[in-house]
Design a protein around this nucleic acid. Sequence first.
DNA 1: AGCAGTTTTGCATTCGTATGCAATATGGGT
DNA 2: ACCCATATTGCATACGAATGCAAAACTGCT
Lengths: 356, 356
Amino acid sequence: MDSGVKKPGVTSSQVARRAGVSQSAVSRTFTPGASISPKTRAKVMAAAKELGYRPNAIARSLITNRSRIIAVVMAYLENLFYPDVLEELGRLLVKENYRLLLFTGFMDRDSDPVFDQLMQYRVDGIVLASTSLSSELSEECAAAGIPVVLFNRTTERDAVSSVTTRNREGGRRVAEFLVAGGHKRFGYISGLESSSTNRDRFAGYKEGLAEAGHTEIIYEVGNYDRAEAEAAARKMLSKPDRPDALFVANDHMAVAVMDVARHELGLSIPEDLSIVGYDDVGPARWTSYGITSMSQPLKRMVEATVNILMDQISSGEIEAEHRILNGELVVRTSARLPKSGVVEVDGRRIFKPAKG
Amino acid sequence: MDSGVKKPGVTSSQVARRAGVSQSAVSRTFTPGASISPKTRAKVMAAAKELGYRPNAIARSLITNRSRIIAVVMAYLENLFYPDVLEELGRLLVKENYRLLLFTGFMDRDSDPVFDQLMQYRVDGIVLASTSLSSELSEECAAAGIPVVLFNRTTERDAVSSVTTRNREGGRRVAEFLVAGGHKRFGYISGLESSSTNRDRFAGYKEGLAEAGHTEIIYEVGNYDRAEAEAAARKMLSKPDRPDALFVANDHMAVAVMDVARHELGLSIPEDLSIVGYDDVGPARWTSYGITSMSQPLKRMVEATVNILMDQISSGEIEAEHRILNGELVVRTSARLPKSGVVEVDGRRIFKPAKG
DNA sequence: AGCAGTTTTGCATTCGTATGCAATATGGGT
DNA sequence: ACCCATATTGCATACGAATGCAAAACTGCT
């Protein structure tokens, strides 16, 4: 039964023969900017359509040494922030005529196989949005001369490009907001302690609180994981000396924390407890949660990411570039309102403390 | 500054020279099952490691006529069900030594560019999980001799493989459940009316209700879209003759509907209104929602998808195969409990009506 | 028509790997 | 030591498209 047979695949030579021209002519027809007369081009196009020809991207890649593929490494997609990023990346990359090779669903630890595959496919660029394996992997890739952008994280040595928001300032703003709300006891539920975003958010929060004279922070670790965040919330909020203001390192965890606080512990939000999250992700906007949250400008972040990649690919220069964007503290119902500082901008409520 | 230069890239010939063997030997070393002596293999491996050689997957694809790439077409990822699918697909495909090329973030209408790219990259298989462009695209791909699996949808003519759950039976079970709960007025919020899943779910629901003597169904369209579902809910639930039992075509919309019902219209769930969803997706399990929902066995669905693809790829036979799996009605708190039929299985509550 | 200048075309080669085939090396048995 | 069977190796070619170069075909001008 002719088993194991693949699709035949129309080649440029077949089209050439059909059109009565050389293979080069076919190639030039499909190469923008190549020298080809309108007449032959038309002949080729006709023949191509008849035969259903499409240039073989694999063969093209081999000779041009460009795969037009960008690898995106995202260990897990549970946090809706990342699917959103993925979607936007897909949109922009396709505009630039690039494809998106996705690496996901693997446990964070084993970076080596991932790296191997990246190398084997000769991807033109890499977006690293995976929490933990960033440092090792990014250095390897950069060393191999492939443009890399760390998305929403950085490494100590800033040898590799990154796109982030001002996490430290964000943490600080959260602190200012909660202080302005008149809170007294402050808590923090941490993300992955090793991640740069978490460190920066916490550092800013701590600074902001310290400036207002609050040095004690009730602390638990949630590791950006829903179940762990629930456990952390249970532990922190069931004690009598629980905080009345809680900053959760991202919305993905904040949602879990709110569920525990309300439905397991019977707390009212924001009466008994104010909660502020980070990312301003989908569920934060759902009325059941209404999470007051530091937003990350997702579209602009993705745009910056793609820009950096395109620059580096076309220039061949792999000079690290760091794009740091601003977020806003979007005010909703999960935290008590301060007496002042909340302003309305295009229908959204933002916390903008009067400066100085 | 040498601009435009790419990574050099170590070739098998370089490794061969270094190891003092032929290029063929290098190739065979990296081809499982090829004839090569342990001794030369070791020499090659050593040289390869020294030079940092990795086989060029592009060149390999060209000659083997296998890209080891599976294309996944998913128009939008807003519904968490799909990111979950993606993650699981990534996991299984990598195990089979395949890569995942993702097409997302485009508007559903323009299928042609997508198809073009699929063809250009000579993908070995395609998973179509996009709601609307399925029929056109799938036929084209199938015609091109590429294995295609429709994920969670079908087309009329079943010329192309698919993996689904028993949506009709699911709809029927929902009806039985709501009838058993003693409800009197039944509503339905529809997904995309043109989608097979929606049609089947609704058909089953209707049948089930009809059997219990209920022929009137209050109907609105949500198009699987959050905002539209909200609008539909407002319209349907603000009228005095609103339903007391509502089947929403998927959980993604059900969440929106619950928010509107509770917070905009002040309805109590399930006292004033029972809601049942479909998919049993993440947020359905969150205590704020606790949606009673028909589950889709995601892991088994993805497994079936990958199996079909692998079979067809290795056999070269592209015979349509339809895998239809069973779901369960997971009982939570969004709908009134019937007096009987709810059983507990591994800690989850399932509705299993005593059979006739 | 004839010529210089410009486009357009085809030839031949290249990218990096896999593989059929023939040549060579290895091993075992006597 | 010799022969045959088997395992390993290298040679040469193929995959499909892009591209430098030289030949060929136009163009406009006198």
